[in-house]
Design a protein around this nucleic acid. Structure first.
Length: 850
RNA sequence: GGGUGAUUAGCUCAUUUGGCUAGAGCGCCUCAUUGACGUUGAGGAGGUGAGAGGUUCGAAUCCUCUAUCGCCCACCA
């Protein structure tokens, strides 16, 4: 088959993927060794972004590698309904149509979003294929598939029955724009310029006054007390008395509590239990009333003083400051920088609001997870994440899982319409009301935090508890994900996995970093600096995208996008293509293969390199060092195979061996360049099947170490000759040598590699002797031309002398000789001997020409 | 406030139990070349490994401090 000069990926990729899919090659085999990855499901509300491209590239390299190790590999694809994320995307869609969520019922919204997401799910599947993801489509799972929903409901029921999920009225982080509560982890804290207002609270008995400092004067209407530190002498006389709350004249007590920092502000703190987390705790300790000032839309409540009702928080703040000032109760205003919680989507300031929600008792659930992590049941890349996760677990608080949005999995809980504290769990969430005996129950209108259901992803996808997949592939071999969702997702999968299955859900975690734009800025649609992976696939080819994006990959590290890496990978793909093109042009239409047999030193050498590379690559891929593995492959293919072996072989081509090298190389390259290697494989006249049918890397062939060393020496000679010819601009030169049979055997290769006129054995002669070999070799360059080389020789001599001095110094060091391992010392000695030999040669040459 | 990561060639980054002359890609310079490939080949320049100190026979690697940048977590009003 005749191949075109340049590899054009676009012409082959979709056909190749179709071929794979048809052949069922992505399904697990019956091998006893299992390897499994479940894809972190992309949010089905848009297109894949560069992070997904990276994720799929990493995971697919892993899975293809393990397949080629003969293991039964399962790669499960999926898509995420992504509750709140999709909700915000859809709200923007609605806004484009001039509508909002208030124009529809929850049921209508749910249906509309369902359709919206269905479109995108289709996109994704197409894009996974374009990226070459060798996923098992039969296991494709959507997070609203019945099995996932069932698992979420089952988890809820189990936890509810074990009192690990409870209903409580607590302060939660609430976004008044989106109209929903959040988990703590979803709030973004930002340092902001603010003010500290010092406000006077007069004692009710008229005996004096207190000054409190607050950043939120508008919450004053919800004050339930003023707190001071119990040991603060300044305030001891106020304890037990009451103060009159400005602007309303309500009486509140002065209390003592340890949490107060006497050095901050005035040392007296207003306590607003319904709008501040700390104050909430204080309120509970002192049994204070919880007065709600702000409602869930972010306005001042209707039972507040008339002038404030319906104002926004900002308006109420401004007004309260003005009013206090007018009444002479504002002592001073101080500028401060403090941390303020924001909605991570819309940046609205988060309000701590009192609400009744479902909470997961994390303190209890986290214990087995901490134990598992401490027992190293899960290995982490980067390793530091393990301890970070333990620390996170140790400090985690109960998890609010109720979301007041339409899009998500309904919480299977029903409330007795007559007795609010009477809740039952029931999976019939399609019903709004349930009749149990003479009681009527109404479904909780809320849906789950998406992460609640995705916490069961590793086994829900494997048909827990009875699925064959679960039995074979759980725990997963690797959980590969972005480091940004370590806490939100990875942590909870561990907790839930242990809770539901009694086992860790995966035995290793690989976290990749974020790809930033070329200037190191975070990529975002609003900044307009996003890179579309599919565009890059179309531009450079899927394999080039994959290799280019992996070329810089280090676990956990963020890094800028570097398009030159993609270009380099595209060139690399083309190099491999041309290696195949050359070998196939020699082989012709031969459909039968002779057993490969090495003849030349180069043959032995390339087999040795092949074996080394295979070992190294396997080791690197086994330990997920993908960029190193790619580097290994790159240099083997380009330097060893193309630039040395093929060039050398042109003098005496060994066809069966070239064929063997090509096949072995294609297999090694396959995890990195699946499309290309398969495309080439399809053109091999002597191979009928898909490369995927191989299911194992090539068997290494025997080679002679002596012959390999001979070729290494030839390489040294070639390099020196090239250097000299380059330096002297000499041409038509002949290399003479004495007493080196292996040079005779490889004379043609040397000639080919150096473009010398000839390589000839001769008993003796004059000319420019090579200094890098112990064999007697010389170039027939005349004295005058060669003299110009003396300058180069001098430089080399200086370098060698310095190296010798260093090596000698090392060996003269008693501590070194006494303490260093023998192998290292032997190595140093060998280096010294060689360096001395080379220097001697150089000196001799210098003498002859100067 | 508490953690944590980084700082290596012009640029982007590697270097895993401390031990070859600290590497790669891109860029740069010189040269080559009509049958595998210009998405090529050969050769080359370029680094006191952020700074200071310490441990060690030996440090980019371990320890301490300093500087700069980044990330994560946090209920100080």
């Amino acid at each position: 088959m005749k191949l075109p000069k340049v590899y054009e990926p676009g012409q082959y990729e979709s056909d190749i993927y179709a071929l794979w899919e048809k052949s069922g090659a992505f399904r697990p085999t019956d091998s006893d060794k299992h390897f499994s990855i479940v894809m972190p499901p992309p949010n089905a509300n848009g297109n894949l972004h560069i992070g997904h491209g990276l994720t799929l590239a990493i995971e697919d390299v892993m899975i293809r590698h393990h397949r080629l190790k003969g293991e039964s590999a399962l790669f499960v694809p999926g898509a995420d309904h992504a509750g709140f994320e999709t909700w915000t995307v859809y709200e923007k869609e609605l806004a484009k149509q001039g509508k909002s969520r208030f124009d529809f019922s929850r049921e209508q919204l749910y249906e509309q979003i369902w359709d919206f997401v269905s479109l995108n799910k289709g996109n994704y599947q197409q894009q996974f294929r374009q990226l070459g993801a060798s996923v098992d489509w039969e296991h494709y799972t959507y997070t609203l598939d019945e099995k996932v929903v069932k698992q979420a409901h089952a988890t809820f029921r189990k936890m509810f029955e074990q009192s690990l999920i409870y209903r409580a009225e607590k302060l939660i982080s609430y976004c008044t724009f989106h109209g929903t509560g959040f988990a703590d982890i979803e709030v973004t804290h930002k340092e902001e310029q603010g003010h500290l207002w010092y406000i006077t609270y007069p004692l009710t008995d008229g005996s004096g006054e207190l000054t409190v400092a607050t950043a939120r004067p508008e919450t004053l209407f919800g004050d339930a007390a003023v707190a001071v530190h119990p040991d603060d002498k300044r305030y001891s006389k106020f304890l037990g008395k009451t103060v009159k709350l400005p602007l309303t004249n309500r009486e509140i007590p002065v209390i003592a509590d340890d949490f107060v920092d006497p050095k901050f502000g005035t040392g007296a703190v207003k306590i607003t239990p319904a709008h501040n987390q700390t104050d909430f705790e204080v309120g509970k300790r002192h049994d204070l009333p919880m007065i709600r000032v702000i409602n869930s839309e972010g306005f001042i409540n209707t039972d507040m003083p008339e002038a404030y009702r319906g104002l926004t928080v900002d308006e109420a703040r401004e007004r309260s400051v003005a009013d206090l000032k007018e009444q002479g109760l504002l002592v001073k205003t101080e500028a401060i920088v403090h941390s303020v919680g924001h909605c991570y989507k819309c940046d609205t300031v988060i309000q701590p609001l009192l609400r009744e929600q479902w909470f997961v008792d994390m303190q209890t659930l986290v214990k087995p997870a901490i134990a598992a992590l401490k027992a190293n049941k899960i290995s982490f890349q980067p390793a530091a994440k393990q301890q970070q996760l333990i620390t996170y677990f140790e400090n985690t608080r109960d998890w609010n899982i109720s979301r007041q949005i339409a899009w998500g999995i309904p919480i299977p809980a029903f409330q007795n319409v007559d007795e609010p504290d009477d809740w039952i769990v029931d999976e019939r969430v399609a019903e709004e009301f349930l009749q149990v005996g003479d009681k009527t129950y109404r479904r909780d209108p809320d849906v789950f935090d998406t992460w609640f259901s995705s916490s069961s992803w590793p086994y829900a996808t494997l048909n827990f508890p009875d699925g064959e997949e679960f039995k074979k592939f759980y725990p997963l071999s690797v959980m590969e994900s972005g480091h940004d969702i370590l806490f939100a997702w990875v942590s909870r999968m561990i907790v839930f996995g242990l809770y539901n299955t009694g086992e860790v859900p995966f035995t290793s975690v690989y976290l990749h970093g974020m790809i930033q734009d070329e200037h190191g800025q975070k990529m975002s649609k609003s900044k307009g600096n996003v890179v579309n992976p599919i565009e890059k696939v179309l531009q450079y080819g899927s394999d080039a995208f994959r290799m280019g994006i992996i070329a810089d990959e280090t676990a956990g590290a963020n890094r800028p996008y570097d398009e030159s890496k993609l270009v380099g990978a595209r060139n690399f793909a083309n190099k491999l293509w041309n290696i195949a093109r050359y070998i196939e042009s020699l082989v012709g239409d031969v459909t039968e293969r002779e057993a490969p047999k090495s003849q030349s030193a180069a043959d032995h050498w390339v087999l040795g390199k092949l074996q080394q590379t295979q070992e190294r690559l396997t080791k690197q891929l086994d330990s997920n060092r993908l960029s190193e593995a790619y580097d290994t492959l790159y240099h083997f293919v380009w330097d060893d195979v193309a630039d040395w072996y093929i060039e050398a072989s042109k003098a005496q081509p060994n066809l069966p061996l070239l064929m063997h090298v090509l096949e072995s190389t294609l297999l090694l390259a396959h995890p990195f360049a699946p499309f290309l290697t398969e495309t080439i494989w399809q053109t091999l006249a002597w191979e009928q099947d898909s490369i995927l049918a191989k299911r194992t890397y090539a068997e290494p062939l025997d080679f002679s170490k002596q012959q390999m060393a001979n070729f290494t020496e030839i390489m040294t000679i070639v390099s020196e000759v090239r250097l000299i010819l380059n330096s002297l601009k000499a041409s038509g030169v002949t290399l003479h040598y004495t007493d080196a049979p292996f040079i005779t055997d490889n004379a043609a290769s040397i000639k080919q590699l150096t473009r010398l006129r000839a390589v000839v054995e001769a008993p003796s002669g004059t000319g420019l002797s090579l200094t890098s070999t112990k064999h007697k070799t010389w170039l027939d360059i005349d004295q005058a031309t060669a003299a110009a080389y003396v300058k180069d020789l001098e430089e080399q001599g200086t370098k060698q002398a310095a190296a010798i001095k260093q090596l000698e110094g090392r060996l003269a060091n008693k501590g070194y000789v006494a303490n260093a391992p023998e192998a290292i010392i032997a190595q140093t000695k060998a280096q010294l001997t060689e360096a001395k030999q080379v220097l001697e040669n150089i000196e001799r040459e210098k003498l002859r020409f100067s």
